[in-house]
Design a protein around this nucleic acid. Sequence first.
DNA 1: ATCGGAACCTCTCAAAAGGC
DNA 2: GCCTTTTGAGAGGTTCCGAT
Length: 404
Amino acid sequence: MKAWEQVFLTEICRPKQWPTITQEQLTEIGYPVYGANGVIGYFDRYNHEEPTILITCRGATCGTINVCESKSYVTGNAMALDNLDTLKVNQDYLAHFLKHKGFKYIITGAAQPQITLQSLGKYKIDLPPLPEQKRIADILDRADELRTKRRQAIEHLNELKKSIFLDMFGDPVTNSKGWVIKPLEQLVHEFRYGTSNKSGEKGYPTLRIPNVFQGELNFEEIKNVLVDDSEFHRLKLQEGDLLIVRTNGNQNYVGRCAVFETCRVIESGYDDNIFIYASYLIRLRLRNEVNSIYLRDFLLSQEGRRQLLSKSKTSAGQYNINTQGLGSINIPIPCPNLQKKYINRIVVISKQIKIYQLFFEQLNNLFSSLQDRAFKGELSKNDSLESILKNHAKNQNKQPESQL
DNA sequence: ATCGGAACCTCTCAAAAGGC
DNA sequence: GCCTTTTGAGAGGTTCCGAT
């Protein structure tokens, strides 16, 4: 533990805000405009030549750190740390420090969180000697880079899934492989709406809109709903059930869907035999002509989305799709063998994604423990850090495709 | 720098429609 | 005529935008 010099943020830089740019003022080309959450568009003027650190100073994302590239425009609601005293501070170090320490204790505002110039005046920075700053920044940069790579690998696998779908089943728009096409209503045993009962302390774990996300079920923030026995048996979910979001304020969220897979439920630490679902989800139980994973991926494909959106109606600013609309969606039916093959491949990739996500979480943990130690001054020169990073890098380089 | 309110999202409720 | 299913409406909460 070292005693480092402490300075006020405003002693080493000058936080500054500019007028906000409206949406209409943004253009397709020009200098990047940084808003609260990174680049929001382009503009024909710039107010920064050099890279500078930005702090989001309003709203939910209050305290987010971005670093803008050279020659860019920084719009209001984000504060730029100008005139940085580079003889005393390394910019990378400062960015890492701010991300680590956060702004909780200086955020004010009743209706909305806010960081003001005044409150920033109270913000203190730990300032090790410059070479040490550079070392810390360098280590954290590299660890951060690993996280980015991992995230990209996950995105890559998601893309891979999409291209496998197109590869095996052809272009759904033109039905290039000439599959038989049937309306969805002929492919299901039943459409069933979930429970309208209010959620509370007691009852069965119940899947809701937020649990259906990006084609997957997540089991975070599960709520319970009390239903009688007969309703429970009607609504109990089983392997292969497809859940579809039927209503939402955002048209893009209508038709979001995911498959109930018992192995995933168990992985999440739940009993797979007690789940029901809420009324804004519709459950599809399929006959055996199409597999629910295939159907899910069709509905999430461009053509599936297009049909879903064309069937959804709007009222009072909300979008709904009913069973009639769902039932009339035209589904190409590939031969059973091909569907099986597809599912096998998807299962493998999904497992790989799970593993990657686990790595990603581990890297996050590693990163925050590195952060902790770095800013406590506990990163010694002969730290085993290098070997930890090397190990992670090795895992990183495994190519997923080779395992398919 | 501040604030009002638009936009967005989730969730609940009750009326309408359907089935026996 | 009662019970179940389907549906739209809107309350309530959060996030974000942009005018002042």
